[in-house]
Amino acid sequence: MKLDHLKVLRAVVETGTVKLAAETLNRTQPAISQALKALEFQTGTELFDRSGYRLELTPVGRRVYLQSLRVLSEADDLAHLIKHFEKGQEETITIAVDAAANPDVLTPVLLDLQSRFPDTRVILRAEVLSGAIEAVQTGTAALAVAPAIQVMLEEEGFDYIPVDRSFMRNVAAPSLIGAMGAPATLADLRGLHQIIARDSGQATGLFDRELGVQKGQRRWYVSDLHMKKQLLATGLGWGRLPEHLIADELAKGILQEIKLPNTHLSFDIEVFAFRMRKSSSGPVASYVWNTFEAASMSLEARERAGS
Rank of each mutant, 00 (worst) to 15 (best):
K2S: 15
L3M: 15
K7M: 13
L9A: 09
E14G: 03
E14D: 10
T17G: 06
T17P: 02
A22P: 01
N26M: 08
R27N: 02
Q29Y: 01
A31G: 13
I32P: 07
K37L: 14
L39W: 00
T43Q: 13
T43A: 13
L47M: 03
L55Y: 11
E56A: 06
E56C: 04
T58R: 04
P59E: 08
G61V: 01
R63Y: 05
D77T: 13
K83S: 14
H84N: 13
V97T: 05
A99W: 01
P103S: 12
T107F: 06
D112T: 14
P118T: 08
D119V: 08
R121E: 12
V122K: 01
L124I: 15
G131P: 12
G131M: 04
A135T: 01
V136H: 07
Q137W: 02
T138E: 10
T138N: 12
L143H: 02
A146D: 00
V151R: 09
D159H: 12
V163M: 02
V163R: 02
D164N: 15
R169S: 04
N170Q: 08
N170R: 05
L189I: 09
L192N: 04
H193V: 15
A197V: 15
R198W: 13
D199R: 10
T204Q: 13
F207S: 04
F207G: 02
F207C: 00
E210Y: 13
V213K: 11
V213F: 04
K215Q: 11
G216M: 10
R219T: 15
W220Y: 06
S223V: 14
D224E: 14
L231C: 05
A233H: 06
T234N: 06
L236S: 07
W238E: 02
G239T: 03
E243I: 07
L245P: 05
A247D: 11
D248E: 13
D248Q: 14
L250F: 09
L250W: 09
G253K: 07
I254W: 03
I258D: 02
K259G: 02
K259D: 09
K259F: 04
L260F: 01
P261V: 05
T263I: 00
T263E: 06
H264D: 08
L265D: 10
F267I: 07
V271Y: 06
F272A: 03
A273R: 03
F274E: 00
S279I: 15
S280R: 13
P283D: 11
S286A: 14
W289D: 03
N290P: 05
T291W: 01
F292Q: 00
F292D: 00
E293M: 12
